[in-house]
């Protein structure tokens, strides 16, 4: 069970810095074509910002913002986006993850459709990596017990 820091300096700095870290993570995901980065790296930074909140504010406080059930839903949602785009390409008479076929659906030239398709894949990968990072951190820190059980034990 992770308790909060009883220290106002660390808590305040973490609370102020977290939105900027998350905006930078979104920049890394969105700008992955032109600079280093992409889905995995941006997802790891996004997960690190949530881990920073868990460390400084404690499990009980952060659980009001993001629950374990929500993390499980997010980790499935990313895989659904990835495979959904891939299957959509098969439905449009192409191969799996053949983004050029998306041009019929979106009414744009195939080059732009490829760029947008890769962006969608990166978003799916980022969401999954973030959720799995936070889930691994929570499982290690609570010793494998679910958060709802933990609360019953301490009472």
């Amino acid at each position: 069970m992770i308790r909060a820091y009883d220290d106002i300096i660390v808590k305040t700095i973490a609370r102020i810095l977290t939105p900027f870290i998350q905006i930078f993570a979104l920049y890394v995901i969105m700008h992955g074509h032109h600079s280093p980065g992409g889905g995995f790296q941006g997802g790891v930074i996004l997960g690190a910002s949530l881990i920073l909140l868990f460390i400084t504010h404690g499990l009980k406080e952060t659980k009001k913002r993001i629950t374990e059930k929500g993390i499980a839903v997010l980790s499935s949602l990313g895989v659904l986006i990835y495979s959904g785009i891939g299957l959509l390409c098969i439905i449009l008479l192409g191969n799996y993850l053949d983004y050029g076929k998306l041009s019929k659906l979106l009414h744009i030239v195939p080059a732009e459709a490829r760029s947008l398709g890769i962006l969608g894949i990166e978003i799916g990968v980022g969401i999954t990596v973030m959720a799995v990072m936070v889930s691994i951190f929570l499982n290690i820190s609570t010793g494998g017990t679910l958060l709802e059980d933990e609360e019953d034990n301490t009472r």
Binding site: Y5, D7, I9, V10, I13, I16, L17
Partner: peptide
């Protein structure tokens, strides 16, 4: 300038 003094303090 935000992070380094905080880490040192912690």
């Amino acid at each position: 300038f935000w992070a380094q003094p905080t880490a040192t303090h912690a």
